[in-house]
Structures are given as C-alpha cells and as structure tokens.
Measured scan of single mutants.
Amino acid sequence: HRQALGERLYPRVQAMQPAFASKITGMLLELSPAQLLLLLASEDSLRARVDEAMELII
C-alpha cells in the first residue's frame, strides 16, 4: 500500500524538487496513509510538506 502511494507521490514531488525527489518522497512516506492520501488530493498541502522537507534537508 505504501509502495503504491510512493509511486503516485514521487512524480509530483519530482516536479517540485527534482534533485531531492527520492529523499523527500521517502520522508513523506513516514506519514500515515491517511495523511498521504490528503497530500495526493491537495497540491497545496503537498507543496507545503515538500517545502518543510527541503528546510530539513538544507
């Protein structure tokens, strides 16, 4: 289940942060499945989480 969510998330994360897409997707997969579904449904929520992840990385 998580694998399938990751496969759906990755291209969207890659479009926002290509250099760190794998790392960010891995970080996002730590969230609950319900939270992941919310990110897939909301571009704004996904962008906010990706921005948060980038702050942790750099």
Rank of each mutant, 00 (worst) to 15 (best):
A19S: 10
R49D: 02
L36K: 01
L31R: 04
L36M: 05
E30R: 14
F20G: 02
F20K: 03
T25C: 06
L36P: 00
P33Y: 13
Q35R: 06
H1W: 04
F20Y: 13
K23E: 11
E55R: 14
S45Q: 14
L40S: 02
A21V: 04
A19W: 09
L46T: 01
I57Q: 02
Q3Y: 04
P18F: 05
L39Y: 03
S32F: 05
R12F: 14
A4M: 12
R47K: 09
V50M: 03
L9E: 00
L38Q: 11
E55F: 12
Q3D: 15
Q3W: 05
L37G: 06
R47T: 04
L5T: 05
A15D: 09
G6E: 15
D51R: 10
R47W: 05
A48M: 12
A48S: 09
L56I: 09
M27E: 02
L37I: 09
R12K: 13
S22C: 09
L40E: 04
R47Y: 04
H1V: 14
L28D: 00
E30N: 10
E52I: 06
A41I: 08
M54N: 02
R2I: 15
Q17R: 09
V13C: 03
V50Y: 01
L38E: 06
G6W: 15
F20D: 04
M54Y: 10
T25H: 05
R49M: 10
I24W: 02
A34D: 08
L5W: 11
V13G: 03
E30W: 09
A34F: 13
E52T: 06
Y10A: 06
R47G: 04
E30A: 12
L40D: 03
L46G: 00
L5D: 03
I58P: 03
E7Y: 05
R47L: 05
E55A: 13
A34H: 09
P18E: 06
P11Y: 15
V50G: 00
R2E: 13
H1N: 13
L38P: 04
A19F: 14
L56K: 13
D44R: 10
R8Y: 12
Q14D: 05
R2S: 12
D51N: 13
A41G: 07
L38M: 13
A21F: 03
L5C: 05
L40R: 01
I24V: 05
I57T: 02
L37Y: 13
M54D: 00
I58M: 12
A48D: 07
V13S: 01
D44F: 05
Y10M: 07
L46E: 00
Q17V: 13
A53E: 03
L29T: 03
L31N: 04
V13T: 01
M54P: 00
V13M: 02
L36D: 00
M27C: 04
R12C: 05
A53G: 02
A21H: 02
R8K: 12
A41S: 13
R49V: 09
Q17M: 12
P33D: 13
D44P: 06
R2M: 15
P18H: 06
R12G: 04
A53W: 05
S22A: 13
A53L: 14
L39W: 02
A41N: 13
L39A: 07
I58Q: 10
A21L: 02
R49L: 11
S42W: 04
I24H: 00
G26E: 15
L40T: 03
R2Q: 12
A19N: 11
L56F: 14
L9R: 01
L31M: 08
A41P: 01
L40A: 02
A15F: 08
S45E: 10
V50H: 00
E7C: 13
A41Y: 07
M27N: 01
L36T: 03
L38C: 06
Q14A: 14
L36H: 02
R47H: 05
A41F: 07
S32L: 07
E43F: 07
R2N: 14
T25Y: 11
S45N: 10
L28S: 03
I58W: 13
R8S: 09
A4G: 10
R2A: 12
A21Y: 03
E7N: 06
M54R: 06
A19Q: 10
V13I: 14
M16T: 03
I57S: 02
A34E: 13
L28Y: 01
L5G: 02
A41C: 07
E43T: 09
A4D: 14
A53K: 04
L56A: 09
L56P: 01
I24Q: 00
M16F: 07
E30Y: 09
E55K: 13
F20Q: 05
A41L: 12
I24L: 05
G6I: 15
L9K: 01
L38W: 13
I57C: 04
E55Q: 14
M16W: 07
R47M: 06
D51T: 10
A41D: 08
L40Y: 03
L37Q: 06
R49W: 13
A48N: 09
A48I: 12
V50A: 02
R8N: 07
L39K: 00
R47E: 04
G26Q: 15
